[in-house]
């Protein structure tokens, strides 16, 4: 091995590569390859979590999942909530990061405060948030009454629009990771660019919007990727806050599969739903990879 650059150029390191990849292959083999095979097998059964006494039901589970209006809504919600998170990250997250970066007083503390909801366990944040939504004594409605804006009070989980609004507020709280990316990347921007812009008389807002926003193009991509991945993995955010209310209208694929898996003899059904969600998730990763690859 390693007998000079020239010698190595034409040669393949296949065997070494295999050795280096063994740990990765262990995880992939077990938790992806085997797992997906298992899902494919179970998805055609009616069975409980003990996996005994399985009854073969053919492709029934797939047909039932695909025709369930609740499942379709869950998939659409997952995409919609991902969209909300991305928008929040690119606007609120970006602006917060820029403002903090101007060196306001107490910026370290401010930074910590904006990151806090994203860094504590989601189950914890969502639980606290969920009980703030109570109509009568909930913290949000009480706050709106206290600051003289009673018109903002909502029956949060009582109608569809308010339910979505509640989820949107929750998602905006969770933009810590994008803030981290933006504050981190903005330091690499050339000082003289900003200096000359200020000399030319550009306003602060203009500098943020017309100059920094385009300059941080690559950060936006990272942010979109990470938020998108996070959204597809979301489960606790909804499970512990709205619980899918009102009437299941805010449920997502995560809560849908979880509920199915814990149902009575519905593990095969959950497996079918899992496979459909996996295909969607893999397609999204694939599309994302194609897009980013073009720019490499």
């Amino acid at each position: 091995m390693g007998s000079g650059v020239e010698a190595r150029k034409g040669r393949s390191d296949g065997l070494v590569a295999l050795l280096f990849l063994i740990p990765l292959l262990f995880f992939y083999g077990l938790y992806y390859l085997y797992a997906f095979g298992f899902l494919a097998q179970v998805s055609r059964q009616r069975v409980s979590l003990t996996f005994v006494n399985a009854v073969n039901v053919g492709w029934d589970n797939f047909r039932l999942v695909a025709t369930d209006p609740l499942f379709r809504r869950s998939v659409l919600n997952t995409l919609l909530f991902a969209g909300i998170s991305i928008c929040a990250a690119l606007t609120v997250g970006f602006l917060l990061a820029m403002m903090i970066s101007t060196g306001v007083r107490g910026r370290k503390l401010l930074y910590g405060i904006f990151l806090l909801p994203s860094l504590i366990p989601l189950s914890l944040f969502a639980t606290v948030f969920g009980q703030m939504l109570e109509t009568k004594d909930g913290a949000f409605n009480s706050l709106f009454r206290a600051v003289g804006l009673p018109g903002l009070q909502q029956d949060w989980l009582g109608n569809t629009g308010s339910g979505y609004a509640a989820v949107a507020i929750l998602l905006v709280y969770l933009i810590g990771l994008p803030i981290m990316y933006y504050t981190s990347d903005v330091t690499s921007i050339n000082l003289s660019l900003i200096e000359s812009a200020t000399i030319d008389g550009a306003g602060t807002w203009q500098i943020f919007r017309l100059m920094l926003f385009p300059l941080l193009r690559n950060t936006h991509k990272t942010v979109i990727l990470s938020v998108l991945l996070g959204s597809f993995r979301a489960f606790d955010v909804i499970f512990f806050s709205t619980g899918g209310q009102p009437g299941g209208r805010t449920s997502i694929t995560g809560t849908y599969i979880y509920n199915a898996a814990l149902g009575n003899d519905r593990v095969g059904y959950a497996a079918a739903a899992s496979l459909i969600v996996l295909v969607i998730a893999l397609l999204i990763s694939f599309g994302q990879l194609l897009l980013t690859r073009k720019d490499r």
């Binding site: 990849l21 992806y32 797992a35 993995r233 599969i257 990879l289």
Partner: peptide, 29 residues
């Protein structure tokens, strides 16, 4: 390292980026 199918293998690895935990709870259990 250089080996045949490296880029393909790399993208095959990355394609699992978005796998949601809930989608694998049944096999993980």
């Amino acid at each position: 390292l250089r080996f045949r199918g490296r880029e393909l293998a790399y993208y095959l690895v990355l394609v699992f980026l978005a796998v949601p935990a809930t989608a694998v709870i049944v096999p993980v259990y």
